[in-house]
Computed example of a mutant assay.
Amino acid sequence: MAKKVRIPIKSAADIRKMRVACETASEILQLCAKAVQPGKTTGEIDAYAAELMKERSCKSAFLGYRGFPGHICISRNEEVVHGIGSDTIIRPGDILKIDVGITKGGWIGDNATTVPAGDIDLETKRLLCATEQSLYEAIDHARNGTHLADLCGAVEAHVQPYGFTVVKEFVGHGVGRNLHEEPQVPNFRPPGRSPKLRPGMVLAIEPMVNAGVPGVTILSDGWTVITNDRKNSSHFEHTVLVTEGKPDILTARPREATEELLGIKMDG
């Protein structure tokens, strides 16, 4: 983080267009999440996402990106991110990470959530709750004048007390006309100086949190990232605009894993 980076500032016209892309990405993500159920395959969810994109006159921001073969990333259980839809059957108790990125009108919308397939055990519920809350802890720091490092550090600071760890090899990022723009947005406090956030900056903030060790491995397909101890991992993401006031979540959606919905207490 010591290297000075040029973070793009979006104009009011840019933001209007980006808001449309982000709202579309959020809608597709929510519909894909509702489609997750035991007995379906991850490939069926990917195909459904492709249909939804076609209906909404947008394209996948992932398909073909550096050779990625899926329309969305769909990652199961110990798979952290970048999972590829296949004939893998979703089973009761699985958790599915769904990451939807689309291009519409020349702008990107990028967001992700973790979805339980039927009932899941208490520890996995706690993992989802902690990860989703860490996203909102980070978002609360997406304010004019805040150091980026404070936003990044908020994720790890929230999940560590529960015994969970953050993935360090993969990070969030700036987003706009391109899927990956400056700055990098890790889920831990980076060393050295960090830039201050300014209105018009747009960040894809995406906690990737493991139930066990933080280490990960990329499978032989060249994409799918799994936890080294094969314990579950959780992933939530929003595209967020820094404004003169409170953060503006461009991919806004109802919170999926709140304590109230899951009926658990995180400190219990």
Rank of each mutant, 00 (worst) to 15 (best):
A2S: 12
A2E: 10
V5F: 07
P8M: 04
K34N: 09
V36A: 06
P38W: 06
G39D: 04
K40S: 10
D46A: 00
E55D: 12
F62P: 07
Y65T: 12
P69F: 01
G70V: 03
S75M: 08
S75A: 07
R76D: 06
H82I: 00
I84R: 03
D87A: 11
I89Y: 09
P92T: 03
I98M: 14
D99Y: 05
V100H: 08
T114W: 01
V115K: 05
D119H: 15
E123V: 02
L127D: 01
L128N: 08
L128E: 06
A130D: 06
Q133R: 14
L135Q: 04
Y136K: 09
I139T: 03
R143M: 09
N144L: 06
G145S: 11
H147W: 07
C152I: 00
C152W: 00
A157Y: 01
V159P: 00
P161D: 00
T165C: 02
V166C: 01
K168R: 04
E169F: 00
G172A: 02
H173T: 09
G176F: 06
Q184Y: 03
V185T: 01
F188C: 00
P190E: 07
G192K: 02
P195Q: 14
R198C: 12
G212K: 11
P214I: 10
T217W: 14
I218H: 15
I218N: 13
S220A: 13
D221M: 10
I226P: 04
D229Q: 04
R230I: 06
K231I: 04
K231P: 08
S233D: 08
H235C: 11
E237P: 07
T239A: 08
T239G: 08
T243G: 10
E244T: 14
K246N: 11
K246T: 09
D248T: 02
A252C: 06
E256M: 15
A257V: 13
A257T: 15
G268R: 15
